[in-house]
Nucleic acid binder design. Sequence first.
RNA 1: GUGCCAGUAGCUCAGCUGGAUAGAGCAACGGACUUCUAAUCCGUCGGUCGGGUGUUCGAAUCAUCUCUGGCACGCCA
Length: 564
Amino acid sequence: MNNIFDKIREQIFNVVQNAFKACEQKGTLPHVQISDMSVEVPRERNFGDFSTNVAMQVSKQTKLPPRKTAELLSGEFDFTGTYIERTEIAGPGFINFYLSRDWLYDCVRIIQEKRERYGEVDLGKGMKVNVEFVSANPTGPLHMGNARGGALGDCLASVLKKAGYDVTKEFYINDAGNQIEKFGMSLEARYLQLVLGEDKVEFPEDGYHGEDIIEHAKAYFSQHGDSLMDKPSEERRRILVDYALPINIQRIRDILSAYGIEYDVWFSEKTLHDNGDVKRVVDYLTEKGYTLEKDGAIWLNGEKLGLEKDEVLIRNTGVPTYMAADIAYHYNKLVTRGFDLAIDLWGADHHGHVARMKAAITPFGLKKEQLEIVLFQLVRLFRNGELARMSKRTGKAIALEDLLEEVGRDAARFFFNLKSAGSHLDFDLDLAVKQSNDNPVFYVQYAHARICSMLRKLAEEGIRGKPVQEVDLTLLKEKEEIELMRKLSEYPEEIALSAKTLEPSRLTRYVMEVAAGFHSFYNACRVKGEEEELMMARLILVDCTRIVIRNILELIKIEAPEKM
RNA sequence: GUGCCAGUAGCUCAGCUGGAUAGAGCAACGGACUUCUAAUCCGUCGGUCGGGUGUUCGAAUCAUCUCUGGCACGCCA
């Protein structure tokens, strides 16, 4: 048993179920089917350690007021072999369970035994999951949307791993299609401007206007001179793209790596075109009657898939659209490579694509649920209380690179993981760099450093912890100690919930609560200088706290400093 | 115009598969360092959960209408 919550839920469920049976035998209650019985930690401490709503849930079946049902059940409760000491009926019919503190001490023992593996749950049961995130166009620098998506995706992948999923992290390189055409066009125009003079060559209106395009052209020119001038335009563009694209991709890899993100797979869109997958997928859809021809193009039949409108798959020029490639890509993930589930993180501006993408995989015998899209809202940066659009350094739109330089990796990752994906994020640049009490990053890191410092100080005096089996944990009974143990006990639950809801941000908020619990404990209780037995018990508790904080910081890839 | 997301304390946000008196941080105010790190802690103040109606034992949570903000509606991705 590594999740104390599961154990307690099981105990409470059994106690309740046996009570129902006893009532049924006595004839005081009819036979009931227990469904939707919740066992939760109540909001208020004086409502007990755990509480269930079962009496309310079955009120329709018992045809009795919930409180009455609760009373009848309570009369039959048998707590033998459980943590439960007593119960109370409260409110509209809640049954509140008051537990012996042994459950907390057992939890401490679990943490001591599991160490860095504490928090693992087997929700995924080895299910193969592909988490795809960032997947930025390799035609320019990474922006704030990529930064948020990166932090969320990376942490989600870590959480899913911890929850027992077999996770693959993936970056989809959009190295084919329209934007690459534009990239080539833009590079060519800059190159020609360089050779012929800026005013001699007009820059395409819908080209990429960024400084980086000019830099690529300059760099190529300085290495190869005007050798491209006697080549046909098409070849010239291809050569320039072949030159600049790998540089951009490498740059993206480097910045993401500095951001703490390492992918398992870098998947090239181009390979899907080159090996015929895109064509095959469209042909299959056509064969099965999911496409129609209109104006010389091949469209995905919206009506047949329950969509609002049709979508072009193959343009009348014969060139496939992004949609066609995306279908082939998801086919590749879910069929060719056999992932049970694909999770994509997209900026909220792509929400219109969600329904069609999920629908588009169904003709292949896949279920819509096998593709989960996590949408995240866009980011606004604030500096000096004002909307910050531009980088201090470059005067251009703020890139991930600029953000890392300004606030650092820890703050960036922490802040992007603080708010749920669905809420708009206002990122306070000043707060993120502030080394003070209102910066949550430091708050958590400080708790960890403080613990390490305590352990160091004790070690200097030759005091070291004992194995938990030799320690009397029942000495931990101060309010702050109890609260801290409770908080630590929730960790596996938090992992499970984060994984279920695909919301890694709750873990960031949770670790702040752990840190708060520790700081309160620290101010209320001493370790060093206390009587030996108590000191040893508290040492265990402090060590458990260190384990959990470090565990989570590692998971969200934020440094856990031993000194501050 | 249609669709999606959001609207909760002065600010930033949790809570949303219906549950008890709606929470946290920041800000404001008042306290706590001769003792393991005060980057900390303790306390006070702060709310018509955008508004209306409905569903029910019970609604911040579900339905519906409405207001406000963001986004999307392309042979772009």
